[in-house]
Amino acid sequence: MNTNKRENVAAYSFLAPALILLGTFLVIPALMAIYYAFTDYYLLTPDQRQFIGLQNFMEIFKDPIFIQSLKNIVLFVVFVIPIQVGAALGLALLINKPRKGNIFFKVAYFSPVVLSLVVISVLWLYLLNPSEGLINSLLANIGMEAQPFLSSPKQAMITIVFVSAWQGAGYQMLIFLAGLQNIPSTVYEAGKIDGVNKWQNFFHITLPLLKPTSVLIMITTLISAFKLIIQPMVMTQGGPMNSTMTPVYYIYQSGFSDRMIGYASAMTVIFGIIIGIITLLQSRLTKEDDM
């Protein structure tokens, strides 16, 4: 009994700092968001906070900007996943062959990963400047007309897709590369004996064996893509005409800039549930694949 108690005390003294920090900055805020979602909490008048039931939730689903932000984020996810993951796989396959200068190419493709999201956002803001940016100057060199990019509601989100994919592909290329190198060469040799050609090799040996890696990469990309905020915040402020407004950015604007804590909390709850479900599905999927 005595040793048991001593073990309890020891364990909790090791746990204490983590429990206090996670409790204060994660558990309490999460619970507060759920509670505030049912109130009309306005930051500047905390004393007049009232319980208003489901009113916030009803308003949210009538809020054209929130609906737009959901559409935008789906558009972003639908494009960024195939482009970024596809590019990563393509690069990994290219690099996987032994050849002179491979290290250089590997470092080159990886290099944007080193830049922070703020840095890439500001940098591309200049590169994509419609009148005097480098990209439009290069397009002019090959006889193409200048594109509006971020200043057009039609092109802005797609532009953010390409900038994000450009930054992230190199990291996933390395993961694919590790996956490729885990495939034993005996598998290919066996294929050779059976007389398979290059395409069969890729579609019937490489791709199936890469499936666990691909699923993992796609789902982690999916989850982080849903939480997009920095690129639109720095590059477009959600515009033009809310075409790059995202849910997390809208939560930030309502709760922080407009100080409507109750309303923002209700959006947090809805969006948190969506991401939570995706994350749960992820652990299911990846577990099955491990077996």
Partner: peptide, 21 residues
């Protein structure tokens, strides 16, 4: 379970906690 909580979405109430502290 906490691994599932998307930290980025609770920034507003994290801010009110920092404010309270």
């Amino acid at each position: 379970v906490l691994l599932i909580v998307p930290v980025e979405t609770i920034i507003i109430t994290q801010f009110t906690v920092a404010h309270t502290l």
